[in-house]
Amino acid sequence: MNCAEFRREYQCLVDRKDTDKLTPEMSAHVAKCPDCDKFARAMKAVDGALREQPRYQISQALMQDLLAIPLKEMRSEFALKRYVRKGLVITLSGVGVIVLGMALLPPGPFFWLRLSVLTSGLAYFCVNALKQKRLTVSLE
């Protein structure tokens, strides 16, 4: 048995928690190879340290937060729906203002009045649409 074979087989024994069950070939090799002896002791020691790691404990406050995830999600979902509804109303009312402005004022005369109605309608629509988009993104 050479060093590479010993180290490979020893790692498998560590995985199976069988480090005391060296085969005769392994015992013979480790007895005459100080490097492999050191390797074996190191792997056994690191295995022991990993098996005895401290447990992770969750605080009561964190546990409450985790249990409240469905409630938070529900709230955020409702809020999202509300904002989408509101956004729809704003869009429709913006379009309404523009259509009304166009319908009430005949083409030709009152050019500046018609233009100001249209511009303000569009501005109202754009500002509110952007505001809704920002709110919706922040909710997501």
């Binding site: 050191k38 002791r41 020691a45 690191v46 022991g48 340290a49 990993l50 790691q53 401290p54």
Partner: peptide, 21 residues
């Protein structure tokens, strides 16, 4: 690993070894 002067077992006996792991 073979060239290190540390004794493997002693290295992990320190109290903070588990946290360090």
């Amino acid at each position: 690993i073979s060239g290190s002067a540390n004794d493997p077992e002693e290295l992990y006996l320190q109290t903070e070894a588990r946290e360090r792991a």
